[in-house]
Computed example of a mutant assay.
Amino acid sequence: MASPPTVDWKCLPDDLIRKISDCFVATDDLDFYMDFRAVCAAWRRVTDDPRADGKNPRFLPTSWIMLRREGSTLPDAPITFVNTTTGRFLRKSMTCLRRYFFVGASPNGLLVLGERAPPYETRVLNPFTGAVVNFKAPIPADMVQDVIVMPSPMMVFIFTGPHKYSVSWADQSSESFKERELIMDYPSDDLCLWNMTHFADQIYLANMYGSIISTSTVREEATMTTAILGPTLEDCSSDMERKRGYYLVKSDGELLLVLNRRKSTGPVVYKVDTVNNVLIPVWSIGNRALFVSPYRSLSVDARKFTTVESGTIYYTGSFRACDYQNGGWKKKKVGYISLVSLEDRCRPPTVPQLFVDYCKDFDVSELEMMLRRNKHSYYSSDGSEYDGITE
């Protein structure tokens, strides 16, 4: 019996190689794309190298989030990512983190890092391609509550709190981060800003009263604007009821404001019309599931995760959820979602538990921890000093 003819895979037509590689890019499977290029020199010759330009929007992740790092005290600890659109989990050992301070993870999967030597310049790492984008600005030494990397033009936004609510931003040409303290119409002890969200080339934040503020990135320079909404929904029965919480979340191409009320009979989700600065009631979120907390919020396609319920809002602070049933929102009890860290749980965590931990825990800047531990002084590029110690 004659043996079947052998196939020389490296001799595939160039257009077929490009079509296959484009499929990986289209589904945000950039790690598959890199594995595909690693097969042979012929395939690398035909396809583009994502590391040639780390800012190329074609090779920037869009749907990935980084879950809590396992053993985060180790610089090369494995990191788990999840694609909120396709439901695929990816666990990677990031040995390259040994060379940097970890600052935070952007909701699109990019990592914000800092050089380990003064002046601690900022770096943005694409963990799926290995591409690194260099920034001149040293990373801030304040407590980092959240970070966002805007792709075009690439800018890093850092939200600090809770002792001082401010947003800092820099692009590649910035010598240092520009900072704007966030002062609104209420006393600072009631401010409680949260949920820094990237939507339509803007950064949005909300506070416990439902006021929403935004940034403007006109001419590649960010500036804070006044409140575009709020305080919203003044029909609350009391001031305490009004302060129960408003959470911003980007969901399926829309910016939503989610309410946390015990006695509300009306809608608990509103679409934020950022053009006309109005709120539009939402009576159904379809197959989406929302996880909301004071630190960050998340929207996922529940059909991709078997243990996540469609049309459900998970309030990670109160362990309650509400869903859309029979023409209206209905509160319901859900299984207890433990606040115990993942490392201490005896049983493997469920997918909702993983998303709860992602939303309720903010990233800790390793530079800030080092400064506090060693009581070093931090000098920014403009010569100003920050001692990094809070009494």
Rank of each mutant, 00 (worst) to 15 (best):
T232G: 08
V275S: 10
T274I: 15
R51M: 08
L279V: 04
F291V: 08
V364N: 06
W329H: 07
R373T: 14
I79Y: 06
Y358S: 03
R98T: 11
N277I: 00
W283I: 02
T160L: 04
G71E: 14
N56D: 15
R296C: 13
A42Q: 15
R37L: 08
S214E: 12
F159C: 04
S93L: 03
K92P: 01
G335K: 10
V46F: 01
W169T: 13
S63C: 10
E385Q: 13
M154T: 14
K250Y: 09
T62I: 07
T226R: 14
M94N: 05
L60M: 13
F199A: 05
R373C: 12
S377W: 01
R58N: 04
F32N: 12
D53F: 06
L67D: 11
F128I: 03
F305S: 07
L16D: 10
D190S: 03
P267E: 12
M154I: 12
P140D: 02
D22H: 12
Y246V: 08
E179F: 00
N277K: 10
S166P: 00
T80D: 08
N108M: 03
G245Y: 05
R261S: 12
I20M: 14
Y379W: 08
E181Y: 04
I213H: 00
L111W: 03
G54N: 02
S174F: 06
N260W: 02
F32E: 11
D35H: 09
F199V: 05
V39W: 01
Y204Q: 02
Y204S: 03
S176L: 11
T350V: 10
C236N: 15
T160G: 05
D22S: 15
E241T: 11
P348N: 15
L205Q: 04
G87T: 04
S238R: 08
V356P: 00
D49I: 02
R51V: 08
A200H: 09
K178C: 07
F89E: 03
Y324C: 13
R51F: 00
G253I: 06
V39K: 02
I20H: 05
G327S: 10
F102P: 07
Y246C: 14
I389Y: 13
F319E: 07
R88S: 04
T47E: 04
A52C: 05
T62W: 02
P57F: 07
C23V: 07
I158L: 09
E70F: 12
A227L: 08
A321W: 00
W329Q: 12
I17K: 13
S174R: 06
D301L: 09
N374R: 15
F291Y: 09
P119Q: 11
G286D: 02
N134Q: 07
V167L: 15
L111A: 06
R58H: 07
K243F: 02
K360S: 05
S284L: 00
P75F: 05
G210W: 02
N83S: 04
T6F: 05
F355C: 11
I17C: 15
C11V: 01
V149W: 04
K243L: 13
K333S: 12
K375N: 13
L255V: 13
Y246N: 14
C40T: 05
S72M: 11
Y315K: 02
E181V: 11
Y165S: 07
F305D: 06
T47Y: 01
Y378R: 00
I148P: 00
D344E: 13
G230P: 09
A170R: 03
I183N: 07
Q202G: 01
E181I: 07
R288H: 08
K10R: 11
V112K: 01
D357C: 03
V275E: 14
